[in-house]
Design a protein around this nucleic acid. Structure first.
Lengths: 330, 330
DNA sequence: CTGTTAGCGCATTCAA
DNA sequence: TTGAATGCGCTAACAG
């Protein structure tokens, strides 16, 4: 690998001059610059980014930490981060926190191989995150309880209000018997959504029947099985609220298989507004969380924290009920 | 940020001693080591990974380049890479090549911010890739024509043979009228799969009817529409071979909607063996490409290229027909 | 076992 | 406008 020194030597100039030239500094004479560029080309010179980073003490790239690079994750969110950083001329690298302390994420975090991080991961402890954060290494955590650290900002979705809206919608449509399909019971988003659901029910003096409080683990298969089980047990609710769209789709499949029409016989509402929700039949009524915006906001927050002094602030993003065809008036 | 020097000073030892201690070198006395660790702890010292990389001239991380971090990509493949590198104690970072020359991928490639790369991306030119490759920066390209460069290895799927097997399966089941749903016409994998399909047809002296040569763009929606159109035109084939599972699922949906039973009335075969293929009803017969293995192999290849001298070699991975329930004897 | 020292490749200050 | 020299933070060879 040719280094700057080699280029300088071949061009017959000093290293500094070569550096200036290659960085398009105006203070080097066009003549000289040309010589340098020619030398660089013949040597096939590529600047060593690592050395540059060390010297400049910044990398101009942001780290995105996910539980698992192999998904599933919210692709819209990643897209928001990606687009935004690109427009800001910052790089984005993603890595997984799988493997805990030995994971690439932990390493990159501890060793500061980026200028900041966006964390959408649950297998990293608050402590590890706090350890890494500092004024010149800001962190944005997503879907995680806010932290008090000065350099850690949090943006999360108003899951509770989303759950509330979805339930309210069903209640307003005249439904009284509503089943809820849970995601993993230790998932914060599931719990929050359920809280919203329960609040709406309570406000209307409606009971949540224990046998209609199902488990679906956030997977399509889980929603399918939970619904199937409910069907086999006989008495059905008039509506099902699944804590995410995948489970809602599973539920619809189970219903369809049992010749139970959606929404004629049973209404179904999901949560997330995944792409697929626009392709199911009937089209899925669901709650949308502006994931793209969340990603974009996070990227902006990180960027601003790096480039200017901004006051720490946490954000709660609103949700929106998307009324389609899978829930109808009773 | 405290540096090694600070730690050394506080501990009252030389920088080198501090370095040795923190790297668990055996040649430092337990006493001294303890002092160093204490100093490090009180200063909240974190080693600067960039400085370390520069000095050691290696990063122990591999770069995975994707067209778009926000998917879609083969998650099994990524999982294979991820697991393998983790077991080899190498880090993995992923980045996108979107944005061409200004993309993070291009930057990281040119500036050698990793020890090697696995490229699963089509918006990077052969030239850019060749530019970056070298003996100490090996590259594995996936699903891309092999390149002659000494340090670029290629692993690709035997799409043609997979297409052949799928078609052969349908023919062996007695089907004569078989439709083919294409992916994007400029996608190499689609073309190869089609070639295999056409070969099988030809071998059995069967015609590929032009009106049964459909376009589905590799999306579920595309498969759905193509099939819908075919249904509306009247005469149906007895079998449909979709160039990927997404389209096959779309096709099954269209068929189902039109009350055409799969596989009673029409057989359907897909390609990829995505997870969903195990949840459709009927279960989807398809062609599996061992994506996990491909990822794992790629990671091993990169690793070995870095750690030992290995001869360049290109790999073609076999496919396997997975017979499930969506295709039956005519 | 510990300390001194010399770079890794680059950006940048200071002097010419 | 150019060059010489310094140092980013770390590792490792070498000397003691």
């Amino acid at each position: 690998m040719a280094t700057l020194k080699d280029v300088a030597r071949l061009a017959g100039v000093a290293v500094s001059t070569a550096s200036y030239a290659l960085n398009h500094s105006t203070k080097v004479a066009p003549q000289t610059a040309k010589k340098v560029f020619k030398a660089a080309k013949t040597l096939n010179y590529q600047k060593n980014g690592i050395a540059r980073d060390l010297k400049r003490n910044k990398t101009e790239t942001i780290l995105l930490i996910l539980d698992n690079l192999a998904g599933p994750f919210y692709s819209e969110l990643v897209r928001g981060v990606q687009d935004t950083l690109q427009s800001l001329n910052y790089g984005l690298i993603a890595c997984s926190s799988m493997g805990g302390i030995t994971s690439t994420a932990a390493r990159f975090l501890a060793e500061r191989r980026a200028d900041g991080a966006i964390i959408l991961s649950f297998n990293l402890s608050d402590q590890e995150i706090e350890q890494a954060a500092s004024k010149d290494f800001p962190i944005v955590v997503l879907d995680r309880l806010a932290m008090t650290h000065e350099s850690i900002m949090s943006v999360l979705v108003d899951n509770k209000s989303g759950g509330y809206e979805a339930a309210k919608h069903l209640i307003d449509l005249g439904h009284r018997d509503i089943a809820y399909i849970n995601g993993p019971l230790d998932a914060r988003d599931n719990l929050q959504r359920r809280k919203g659901f329960e609040l709406a029910m309570k406000e209307s003096d409606l009971e949540v029947h224990p046998k209609w409080m199902l488990q679906g683990g956030f997977t399509r298969q889980g929603g399918y099985l939970a619904t199937k089980m409910m069907i086999m047990q006989g008495k059905l609710p008039t509506a099902i609220f699944a804590a995410n769209d995948e489970m809602a789709i599973g539920a619809m499949n189970a219903l369809k298989e049992a010749k139970i029409d959606v929404p004629e016989d049973v209404s179904v509402v999901g949560f997330d507004d995944i792409e697929m929700a626009r392709y199911t039949s009937p089209l899925l009524t669901t709650v949308s969380q502006a994931n793209y915006d969340i990603g974009s906001l996070s990227a902006h927050l990180i960027y601003r924290s790096i480039t200017e002094e901004i006051a720490k602030k946490d954000y709660i993003m609103p949700t929106e009920l998307i009324v389609r065809d899978s829930a109808k008036r009773l």
